[in-house]
């Protein structure tokens, strides 16, 4: 856990913010692991963008923080020995990893659903060669597309990202992604462009579907709205802009006990680029290991047992706010 993070949250705790485990107790809830069905792998923090809401502080400056081939092979062996329903490759921009194609081709046979998370701009740069691999292996794409507005997108992700993202979505549609009966799933992820909660998923999906179809002829399968997590670069922005306390209060006051049973950390195991294990990608960012125990992928053969401890902290209020994190 970084020193800055500790300072920020201890200040707000002194102002009466209830620690996350205490809030669970207050609602007679417990948070423990179920059967693990998803293997999420962060193959590196190198990214072509410097998004202001990034909880991992990924960017061009992280080019050395990439998963080695040896660690990839350990992940592949781990996946081969366990029947994960979903394998989810994320980053950084995973497209920047030189062994991405190798990794995808190996993992494909070990799960029903393989997902690649993309910021779209790097996929645009890699072009049709990578899209061909993704189509051939039936890899689904979950793409960041924060807004229907150029200015709002630029504020989060940088100038020019909106137009490139639209071009990439059109190209993916040409490859069959997002089209009915193609079997190639294209999902969009929308994040708010600041210190406020996201709109309801259903209303936003309806609006994006209508506008993207009418204005750009783009189709997609599902849209997910995620609140920004007060970690990494987004935490720094919250502090610098004087929004930190109000934002965390907003998240905690929107605590919805009904979300706890469906939290992804109950059924997911997250591997960092250097091979360590976590309960989720956000715990990677805050440096909290799986069940608060430092463990490397080379040290295990099986996922954690149901009933096991899940590491939590204040940032967990993000996943329990409103309708929660899917």
């Amino acid at each position: 856990m970084s020193l800055n993070r500790l300072k920020s949250f201890s200040k707000i705790e002194n102002n009466g913010l209830s620690p996350f485990p205490q809030t669970l107790v207050n609602h007679n809830l417990s948070l423990t692991r179920d059967q693990t069905i998803t293997l999420q792998i962060n193959i590196g923090l190198h990214c072509n963008q410097v998004c202001r809401h990034c909880h991992l502080d990924a960017g061009p400056h992280r080019e050395n923080d990439m998963m080695s081939r040896e660690t990839m092979d350990r992940v592949i062996r781990f996946a081969a020995g366990n029947a994960f329903k979903v394998i989810d490759i994320t980053g950084g921009a995973p497209e920047l990893h030189p062994d991405l194609e190798y990794f995808i081709r190996k993992l494909k046979s070990y799960s029903n659903r393989l997902i690649l998370r993309s910021n779209l701009t790097m996929l645009h740069e890699k072009g049709e060669a990578l899209m061909d691999v993704l189509r051939e292996t039936g890899t689904d794409i979950v793409a960041s597309f924060p807004s229907l507005n150029d200015v709002q997108t630029a504020a989060i992700r940088g100038k020019g990202c909106f137009d490139i993202s639209v071009l990439t979505l059109k190209k993916l549609n040409d490859f069959g992604y997002g089209k009915e009966d193609s079997g190639l799933c294209l999902d969009l992820v929308v994040n708010p462009s600041g210190a406020f909660l996201p709109p309801s998923q259903a209303s936003q999906e309806k609006r994006f579907r209508k506008v993207l179809k009418q204005k750009c002829g783009i189709v997609f399968n599902n849209l997910y709205t995620f609140a920004n997590v007060p970690l990494g670069r987004f935490l720094k922005w919250l502090e610098d802009s004087g929004n930190f306390e109000k934002y965390v209060e907003k998240l905690s006051s929107a605590f919805n006990p009904c979300t706890v049973d469906g939290l992804m950390c109950k059924t997911l195991i997250s591997v960092s680029w250097d091979g360590y294990l976590y309960d989720c990608d956000f715990n990677q960012a805050s440096g909290q290991f799986l069940g608060n125990r430092k463990l490397h992928i080379s040290e295990i053969n099986d996922p954690p047992e149901p009933g096991g401890h899940i590491a939590t902290d204040y940032h967990c209020y993000t996943c329990t706010a409103g309708s929660g994190f899917t």
Partner: peptide
Amino acid sequence: CLEKGSHLGE
């Protein structure tokens, strides 16, 4: 407005 998905232009 922001939480309902509107942007500054709208």
